[in-house]
């Protein structure tokens, strides 16, 4: 079974992001970039499925600037077999990414696409669902457990207020939640081997997809600064302030 894992290059989760002075977006120049943590979980799950003998090949796909190849290398070092880079300097929005992925899925014919449930840069949580719709495949989003038996994927989903288990008929789309697994550290020999694994390079036009943005960003701004707290002298004063000032009770 072939698995595709899309991996996104995002600002590293340790970096404190800053809004550009003109409010057009966030500052990414000179900022450390890494693989989206949810995508790391997706790669890890695919590698575990391969180690169990369920999957036979894992393809890591990334889209965006040329440096996305480094994100693919990270996936290859974790255990993916080969990579596909769709190179574009355009602002790639979820629908465009989903369409590009559909074109790749049509070529590669995987049984499973495992995506992060969202990317930590814009938190859209849209690409997996859109891809499922475009392909007409079943989807199991926010997965905390995946089990493959025959042509069925049993996925435990983290939903509001509990867990929901769904059976998906393969081929299917799964998006990963935080608790699905703990990604491994890439081993040194695998980092070295990753350099020799192939990465195919293509452009959106090669896949026949128009990636022109459809969403317009009006303004990006910092959240309002947290106001200083107040000390209250008594429980009665606290209750009164909660009632009259905070208006929460």
């Amino acid at each position: 079974m072939k698995i595709i894992v899309p991996v996104k290059r995002v600002v590293d989760y340790n970096v404190k992001v800053r809004v550009k002075s003109d409010g057009s977006g966030i500052e990414t120049a000179g900022v450390k970039m890494s693989m989206n943590p949810f995508d790391e979980i997706a790669v890890e799950e695919a590698v575990r499925l391969k180690e169990k003998g369920v999957a036979t090949e894992i393809i890591a796909v990334s889209m965006g600037v040329a440096q996305c190849a480094e994100t693919i290398r990270t996936a290859l070092a974790m255990g993916a077999d080969r990579g596909i880079l769709v190179e574009s300097d355009a602002d790639l929005q979820p629908l465009a990414v989903a369409k590009l992925l559909k074109a790749i899925v049509d070529q590669e014919q995987p049984q499973l696409v495992i995506l992060g449930k969202q990317a930590i840069d814009d938190d859209m949580s849209a690409t997996g669902q859109m891809l499922a719709a475009l392909l007409g495949w079943a989807q199991g989003t926010f997965a905390s457990k995946i089990n493959i038996e025959g042509d069925t994927a049993t996925v435990t989903r983290e939903v509001d207020g509990g867990l929901e288990t769904v059976d998906l008929k393969l081929p299917a789309i799964v998006t990963t939640d935080l608790r699905l697994n703990e990604p491994r550290y890439a081993s040194l020999p695998n980092i070295m081997k990753a350099r020799k694994k192939p990465i195919a390079n293509m452009k959106p036009a090669d896949l026949g997809v128009d990636v022109t943005p459809r969403l317009t960003v009006i303004k990006v701004s910092e959240p309002p600064k947290r106001k200083a707290g107040q000390k209250v002298g008594s429980v009665a004063e606290l209750v009164s302030k909660l009632r009259t000032e905070a208006k929460v009770i």
Partner: peptide, 22 residues
Amino acid sequence: EDVSPELMDSILEEAAKLAEEV
């Protein structure tokens, strides 16, 4: 011959994770 700056960077990054987290 095959030890490129990019390879060394990816090794440093993974070593950093190990040092910091483990």
